[in-house]
């Protein structure tokens, strides 16, 4: 038999390089475009130090747009990987941190952190992580046993958890009177505009190790798709692997939510599109989701900055406008 397909390492490299190129292009676009207009040539000159640009533009590129683009990159990578991991673990293509209410749970934790006056890092991030883990535990408890088999049960539970979290967030907002209310409302919009470089470094330190850990377990995620029993007979320690994946994903997602608020549907759109394009192999999908998710959120943020004639809108609005219709299409497809 001839080997019609390239070896796995070659496929990982080729696809990752292609997506890296896409990410690089979107990042340059993100650095060049904004409410003050766009200038790709000058941005490239400034980036490579070839020519000194206008000092105002230099400031905008390096101090405002660069942290924002980097934050969007990390957020996209974390949320997209989060969706991929949940979909593999729960064997449900519609599972995603936002839809399952884990982002909202993380939001409750973060808001409580803000209300009791914790520092953004690590205080609010730890509170967000605790919120996401509590929500995940509640969700798994609600769908444990036979109900777990039914895909709709999981989604329905997610919707209920989400609704409960939303109500709780409203309650917290209604009892907040001082300037912390402004912080909470701005944060809830899922906005990337408040990015700064120290925040980017901190998020990098959280997201990157988690992503590497998930990549190391990517082959195990393939085995999970065959069902838990068969995965066990192929050498997988289900409890240990599931715990590592859930904790790594929750840490990543809650750090992201703590940094910029809940940005929805990224974990649904990107893994699904990439699965259609490159197949179901998680060894390829993990790096592809990392890079593809990054490029997607950078692109959504560019749209959020440039679409309104005046000012800008939160990136979460764009991701929801793309993600929600796709979710409905997928739901209809899975029901047939």
């Amino acid at each position: 038999m001839t080997h019609s397909k390239p070896r796995i390492l070659q496929r990982i490299s080729v696809i990752s390089l292609l997506l890296l190129l896409v990410l690089a292009v979107t990042m340059v676009m993100g650095l060049s475009m904004g409410s003050t207009g766009s200038n790709i040539k000058e941005t490239l000159f400034s980036l490579f130090g070839l020519k000194k640009a206008d000092p105002m533009l230099e400031t905008i590129i390096w101090r405002i747009r660069l942290p924002r683009v980097c934050l969007a990159t990390l957020v996209g990578a974390a949320l997209s990987l989060g969706g991929l991991v949940f979909q593999a673990l729960l064997r449900n293509p519609l599972a995603e941190p936002y839809i399952l209410g884990i982002s909202s749970g993380s939001g409750i934790g973060a808001i409580l952190g803000i209300l009791i006056g914790l520092a953004p890092f690590p205080g609010v991030s730890i509170a967000a992580f605790a919120g996401s883990m509590a929500t995940l535990a509640l969700l798994l408890f609600m769908t444990s046993g036979r109900a777990m088999i039914r895909k709709n049960m999981l989604l329905l539970s997610g919707v209920m958890v989400n609704a409960f979290c939303a109500a709780f967030i409203m309650f917290l907002i209604s009892i907040t009177q001082d300037d912390r209310l402004h912080n909470i409302l701005f944060w809830l919009m899922g906005d990337l505009s408040m990015a700064d470089l120290p925040q980017v470094w901190l998020l990098t330190a959280v997201v990157l190790p988690c992503a590497v850990l998930i990549f190391c377990l990517s082959n195990t995620m393939n085995l999970f798709l065959m069902g838990r029993e068969l995965a066990q007979t192929m050498g997988v320690n289900i409890k240990v692997t599931t715990s590592i994946l859930l904790i790594a994903t929750s840490v990543m997602v809650s750090a992201t939510v703590a940094a910029c608020g809940p940005i929805g549907f990224v974990g649904l759109v990107i893994p699904h599109l990439l699965r259609l394009g490159i197949g179901p192999d998680h060894r390829i999908l993990v790096p592809a989701c990392f890079l593809g998710g990054s490029a997607y959120v950078v692109l959504c943020d560019i749209l959020a900055r440039t679409l309104p004639e005046q000012g800008e809108m939160p990136a979460g609005v764009i991701t929801a406008m793309i993600g929600a219709p796709l979710f409905i299409i997928l739901l209809k497809k899975s029901a047939t």
Partner: peptide, 30 residues
């Protein structure tokens, strides 16, 4: 097993090759 998930997204070749996992490294590079 008697029953396996019916919606397995893999090709026959991919599925059979996955059985090498216990004999491969952590990343499962065949």
């Amino acid at each position: 097993p008697q029953s396996v998930p019916e919606d397995l997204p893999f090709t026959v070749r991919e599925l059979v090759l996955m059985a090498r996992s216990p004999r491969m490294g952590l990343l499962g590079l065949e």
